[in-house]
């Protein structure tokens, strides 16, 4: 029973964290003139900065996938990889960030290619 409750609480934390990040994005779309592309980059850079100053790890510990799946989590991974690499040496500080996000980039390219072969783009329904 206790296990079930802690699982539910964990899921709620993930949902709340991801939802809160999306809420910030929606507010930026509604109330600022920022284009979607700029909002995307803003989130990514924010992830890097927050991890660099040591804040974002706490958010990830609380929200797990809710904090790592949005694009801000990509920035977090970049910074985290670079910081871990820096413990080894200067070159690793540069390559560490890339190593950490390789899976994200590679799978994006791979699946985009596969899906572009299978499907055709069409006008979205609204």
């Amino acid at each position: 029973m206790e296990g079930i409750i802690s699982t539910i609480l964990k899921y709620l934390a993930v949902f709340a964290t991801g939802g809160a990040l999306c809420l910030i994005g929606q507010l930026l779309i509604n109330y600022t003139k920022l284009t979607p592309a700029r909002i995307l980059v803003l989130f990514l850079v924010l992830g890097v900065i927050l991890q660099a100053v040591g804040v974002y790890q706490a958010v990830v510990d609380f929200g797990n996938a809710g904090a790592t799946i949005p694009i801000i989590g990509f920035g977090y991974s970049l910074a985290k990889g670079a910081m871990e690499g820096a413990k080894i040496g200067f070159l690793e500080a540069i390559s560490g960030g890339f190593k950490a996000v390789t899976i994200g980039i590679d799978s994006a390219i791979f699946f985009a290619y596969i899906f572009s072969l299978i499907f055709r783009s069409r006008t979205k329904k609204c």
Binding site: G25, S121, T123
Partner: peptide
């Protein structure tokens, strides 16, 4: 943006 980008 191209539709494929899926922007809001």
């Amino acid at each position: 943006f191209p539709l494929e980008l899926g922007t809001m």
